[in-house]
Nucleic acid binder design. Structure first.
Length: 592
RNA sequence: GGACCGGUAGCUCAGUUGGAUAGAGCAUCAGCCUUCUAAGCUGAGGGUCAUUGGUUCGAAUCCAAUCCGGUUCACCA
């Protein structure tokens, strides 16, 4: 039990005894005491004033005396300032906590709870390479999965690949027109970038043709409809759906190029999936469900034979689920896939890591699934995240202002190499070790940078800040870990007896107090589906340790007991830093 | 226009179910390496928490209105 819960329970029983009436945790607040006051934790008394009809001071004095007299081994003293009861916690509480947990690599994590969660993330298109936005998505999806696991869930990571549709045909058409048979292999280009190039080329050519038609007197709308390259693309989509062999063949070939490119990127950034769904397999899935929905009167048919759901009672509009020609729309396949996920895995929760521009769509999807009674539809959760903007404004693929994922990784690796060489601390590393270190630092910096912000918020990507390795960054935390490891290596073997600790110094206590909060932090991150909670915590812990580190020596501690205490302190800090960073998908080096 | 999200230091962000003098990092300035890794530490300056009103012992936090920014409201995906 956490110290806060412990205090809450103790206060509740004290209050009940003193005032002869029941209390709950909601009747008062327990906060950490502000540094300028004496004490460790504070009970806020104001909320009790009304029901007890006593002054805050009177309540505080009675409560403080009762707590200290009945729990002398836990509370060593109290003071009351303006309605705040500041409690001092016995050092033995902190040293016991340290002794019990300092070497536990599972500290803060929960045992399996028998629940299954699917986390869907990444969801790329096969017509362009991954960019900065995908990175936020991937890092979030991975991290949330790890956080769920730490909270006892079994996690299935999934991706849905958007591999069909008119946009895919665009790059295919452009390749036919302009590539003259070139391939990724023949040009030495990464497959996804190769295909992405033709997608861009399509848009250029399309715009050129449309402009030409407009110049010839057509309206913009007519021109966009009649441009030959667009007509060819639409024909190709029809051919694809009809299964025309040469179109299917080209589609498979080009998708394969993209997949090999994606695989390389995923491998590099440390992302993977337990199951990958392809839209070409799922896009017809929802049709049977539409029929079921009609039978159950969840859906209704209009005169033109299109099928709809009426969500006006839920504050939304009517939504189409099948066109009048009988073909399915975007949301239909999502319903189908949602059901398939439940049937395949019997999951309790289904988390979708998707940008906030789909908030409305996901709301509708969840509602429809609930009305249809699909699986555990109440467990559908849209982890909605904000866009990544550049300091110069939004990323626009058509204007070439996207930040490419591969380029960014390369740049970060180069930066970490440069920083490391300037510092010259790892001159004895082999080339293999160096490469691994640069990757660890580069990805650490990137992941931390993208995960330290609340997911739901739109964030700004500042290239200068992102390559900074000082302050609130991944490398800062990695550095703190490496530094601790260095101390521990030099300390060699040491054993713990039942030590009699002398009084804790403020900076020693500060570190343990931070460490005590880790289990709560893991829980909070899970509850809020929010990795930034971990990032902020891990940074603060590292910062607290660093303050301790510069003030007090471990190796040359005042006494042998102090040395052991500090070795434990250092061990526990390193363990939590490693564990917390792992929840963010970030590795920590032993040396750097 | 309706719905949803946001507005906190020059910049990027924290800020628990309302609690004490609103916090970090970057940037700026001033200090700290003969001692465990200075990718570090200590300190200073920097705020009308968008605005106005309300709720109360107490509001960045809750309510209402207004202003500004974003997203969405397709028989596109």
């Amino acid at each position: 039990m956490s110290i806060v819960s412990t205090i809450q329970q103790t206060v509740i029983s004290s209050l009940s005894a003193l005032y002869n009436q029941p209390f709950t945790e909601k009747d008062f607040q327990v906060n950490q005491t502000k540094p300028e006051f004496e004490g460790d934790y504070t009970v806020v008394l104001f909320s009790l004033v009304k029901s007890l009809k006593l002054s805050p001071d009177a309540i505080g004095t009675a409560l403080g005396n009762d707590l200290v007299s009945k729990n002398a081994e836990r509370f060593t003293g109290f003071n009351i300032i303006k309605g705040f009861l500041n409690l001092s916690i016995a050092d033995s509480y902190w040293t016991d906590l340290l002794q019990k947990n300092y070497n536990d690599i599972c500290y803060g994590k929960k045992p399996m709870n028998g629940k299954k969660v699917m986390v869907e993330y990444s969801s790329p298109n096969t017509n362009k390479p991954l960019h900065l936005g995908h990175l936020r998505n991937n890092f979030l999806g991975w991290s949330v999965s790890e956080i769920l696991k730490a909270n006892g869930y079994e996690v299935i990571k999934s991706a849905i690949v958007n591999d069909r549709g008119i946009h895919i045909c665009k790059s295919m058409i452009a390749w036919q027109l302009f590539a003259s048979g070139q391939t990724p292999a023949s040009t030495g280009t990464k497959g996804d970038h190769f295909v992405g190039k033709y997608y861009v080329q399509f848009n250029d050519e399309y715009k050129r043709q449309a402009d030409e038609l407009i110049a010839a007197g057509k309206t913009k709308e007519e021109a966009e409809k009649e441009a030959p390259i667009m007509k060819a693309t639409q024909q190709m989509l029809l051919d694809w759906e009809a299964g025309k062999p040469e179109v299917i063949e080209l589609w498979k070939t080009m998708n394969q190029w993209v997949y090999s490119g994606f695989d390389a990127t995923y491998k590099r950034i440390g992302s993977d999936f337990d199951i990958t769904y392809y839209e070409s397999n799922t896009y017809l899935l929802g049709k049977k469900i539409v029929q079921d929905g009609l039978d159950k009167n969840v859906f209704f048919k209009k005169e033109d034979n299109s099928i709809w759901i009426d969500l006006t009672a839920d504050g939304l509009d009517e939504k189409i689920v099948q066109r009048k020609d009988g073909t399915s729309v975007y949301i239909t396949q999502d319903i189908g896939l949602a059901e398939q996920k439940y049937e395949q895995y019997h999951i309790d929760q289904s988390i979708y890591v998707i940008g906030n521009e789909q908030d409305y769509h996901m709301k509708v999807l969840k509602l429809i699934c609930q009305k249809l009674g699909i699986g555990n539809a109440a467990g559908i959760y849209h982890l909605s995240y904000g866009m990544v903007e550049l300091t110069s404004g939004k990323m626009k693929s058509r204007e070439g202002t996207v930040v490419d994922a591969d380029d960014l990784v390369d740049e970060m690796v180069a930066t970490s190499r440069q920083h490391t060489e300037e510092l010259g601390k790892v001159k004895d590393f082999t080339e293999v070790e160096l490469t691994e270190l640069f990757d660890t630092l580069a990805l650490g910096a990137m992941k931390f940078y993208l995960l330290r912000v609340d997911p739901k918020k739109t964030m700004v990507f500042n290239p200068q800040d992102s390559i900074d390795f000082h302050g609130f960054t991944g490398p800062f935390v990695q550095y703190t870990h490496a530094r601790i490891k260095s101390i521990l290596r030099k300390a060699g073997e040491w054993s713990m007896l039942n030590e009699q600790w002398t009084a804790l110094l403020p900076l020693e206590k500060a570190v343990i107090v931070m460490a005590e909060q880790y289990p709560n932090i893991i829980e909070q991150a899970c509850r809020e589906h929010n990795p930034s909670v971990i990032a902020n915590y891990v940074f603060q812990l590292a910062q607290t340790f660093n303050s301790f580190y510069t003030e007090h020596s471990v190796a040359n501690a005042e006494t042998e007991e102090k040395k052991k205490l500090r070795l434990q302190l250092a061990t526990m800090t390193a363990t939590i830093l490693k564990s917390g960073m792992e929840l963010l998908g970030i590795k920590v080096p032993e040396r750097m």
